[in-house]
Design a protein around this nucleic acid. Structure first.
Length: 468
RNA sequence: GGCGACGUGCCCGAGUGGCCAGGGAGCGGUCUGCAAAACCGCGUACACGGGUUCGAGUCCCGUCGUCGCCUCCA
């Protein structure tokens, strides 16, 4: 069966277009990953969630997906400085004698652990920048040979004027931007918009590598050109990243890759919008970051956050608030209850009325990743009056291949042990209920509530769940 | 200064000219010892001002407001 056609919003053309894979039936995707010298926060994670939803959607629709997500582990620390607001933890680690690579490994692990908590499927390839210095140097050499880059005193710059298409992605015109408003202009450049492919390592620089231009380290953008083409070839289907990477990062990446190959490399560029907190971008510098691992202490499960992210389209900003998270947690619980109410049976999803619901879901995700609409279709299933509980379960678990909400896990209180003493109170309450001593039963329920345990009475008896 | 996005009901958020999100919260009801859950029902929107059209939340112009990028930010 051939894959379902998908429409996506290409940042390059600023319009929806139908995905036409370079190799029919196969899709190659590259996502700009995290910088691993600090913890990833839920704003960062929203973007990786978007990439996860993209690859899950394409796989669901019948494509064979190759997904590459890189790790930016080229650090720019020096052993004699802490300027520029370097993370205190970085400074402390350096003082302890840790190497930049060890620090990067620590934060890489933390990032990937957070991704696991929100059911992000690991990529097929997770390349690290520091493992690809050779590929970067080869690419830079090609650019120099082609006359698209020039070297000044150990630093190599890309010559923007040699690449007419520069600015096509971002709409920026080179002579209108405010280069050097904050950072002092590097006067070696021929043009302020020229950007570094390779930088000379000054004394004190901790990470540096030998090159034909002397000891140095790569510019930020070249790593993605080198790694994406190494693993996906010099023509691949989709490149994703956060909206903030559009300029200059992706603009520069296009200039490098297309300059070196002489042809288009990426067919579709996809950019995800920000997660905000009080309508402000979540960023370390703004001091408003939240990590996935901090959600439980706020009374939420990590997957509540995944649900929240699914309620907004990837090209829309999403504001993270307490009430929004409460709503997300409630919505997720509703879907899980619907799944739990059904049993595992051989439901034929291609038969009506299941196929109708399946088509609605499929149409939603195939239309520029309409996950919010797809989520609505999941709720339509949960509340449908023409489906049996078993059919609902089968449909929702099928949808969950894309949604990734672990809908088959217990509806609440997931694996959280009950506090000490709760078991005894529950036993006493069961006895009170058997004796129809309602006053004592209600008193014990209040007492349990004081311990953070909620009790529900069902035909099968009491069900205790942990929730504040 | 340049580039870009956005303003939808109590909240979050879909909306691709005519019909429609969805979730949460609230209110009323059914059911259950009570509560919870589930189910049924109810309400409140398209920032503002013009325009195009038989018809505008959706298209065009303007105003106001918010946010992002131009800083090795997702």
């Amino acid at each position: 069966m051939s894959p379902t056609p998908v429409r996506l919003h290409n940042s390059l053309s600023r319009s929806l277009q139908t995905l036409e894979p370079i190799t029919p039936g196969r899709v190659t995707i590259y996502t700009c990953g995290s910088t691993v010298y600090r913890y990833a926060h839920i704003g960062n994670l929203r973007t990786y969630l978007f990439g996860d939803l993209l690859r899950r959607t394409l796989a669901y629709l019948g494509y064979e997906v190759t997904y590459v997500k890189n790790v930016t582990d080229v650090g720019h620390m020096r052993d004699d400085q802490t300027d520029g607001g370097e993370d205190r933890m970085i400074v402390a680690a350096l003082e302890e004698g840790k190497t930049p690579l060890e620090i990067a490994e620590f934060y890489t692990r933390a990032w990937l652990e957070d991704e696991v908590l929100i059911n992000i499927v690991e990529p097929d390839v997770l390349p690290k920048a520091t493992d690809h210095i050779g590929e970067m140097l080869a690419l830079i050499e090609t650019l120099v040979d082609k006359g698209l880059a020039y070297e000044v005193d150990g630093t190599v710059y890309f010559d923007v004027s040699s690449f007419p298409a520069y600015g096509r992605l971002s709409g920026q015109r080179v002579n209108q931007t405010r280069a050097g408003t904050r950072v002092e202009v590097e006067t070696d450049k021929r043009h302020p918009a020229d950007f570094a492919l390779w930088k000379r390592a000054e004394p004190g620089r901790l990470m540096h590598w030998p090159s034909q231009w002397g000891e140095g380290f790569p510019g930020w953008h070249i790593e993605c050109s080198a790694m994406s083409m190494k693993y996906l070839g010099d023509r691949f289907d989709i490149h994703t990243g956060g909206i903030d990477l559009k300029f200059p990062h992706h603009e520069d990446e296009i200039a490098q890759s297309e300059g070196a190959t002489g042809h288009r490399v990426v067919n579709i560029w996809l950019h995800g919008e920000f997660l905000t907190l009080d309508d402000e971008k979540m960023a370390k510098s703004a001091g408003n970051i939240i990590r996935v691992s901090e959600l439980p202490e706020k009374g939420f499960q990590p997957l509540d956050f995944r649900y929240l992210a699914l309620t907004a389209h990837y090209r829309s900003k999403l504001d993270f608030t307490e009430p929004a998270m409460q709503a997300a947690a409630s919505g997720l619980r509703r879907l899980r209850r619907a799944v739990a109410a059904g049993a595992e049976t051989g439901v034929d999803l291609t038969a009506e009325p299941m196929a109708g619901y399946g088509n609605r879901f499929r149409d939603a995700i195939a239309d520029d990743l309409g996950i919010p609409a797809a989520l609505a279709s999941a709720h339509a299933v949960a509340g449908a009056d023409d489906l049996t509980p078993d059919q609902k379960r089968a449909l929702l678990l099928d949808f969950d291949r894309v949604l990734g909400l672990s809908l088959d896990s217990p509806a609440e209180g997931t694996g959280i042990p009950l506090p000490a003493g709760a078991a005894e109170l529950l036993e006493r309450r069961a006895a009170a209920r058997a004796a129809m001593d309602w006053i004592e039963a209600d008193r014990l329920r209040d007492e349990l509530a004081g311990l953070g345990v909620r009790v529900r009475d069902t035909p099968e008896g009491q069900v205790a769940t942990r929730r504040s």
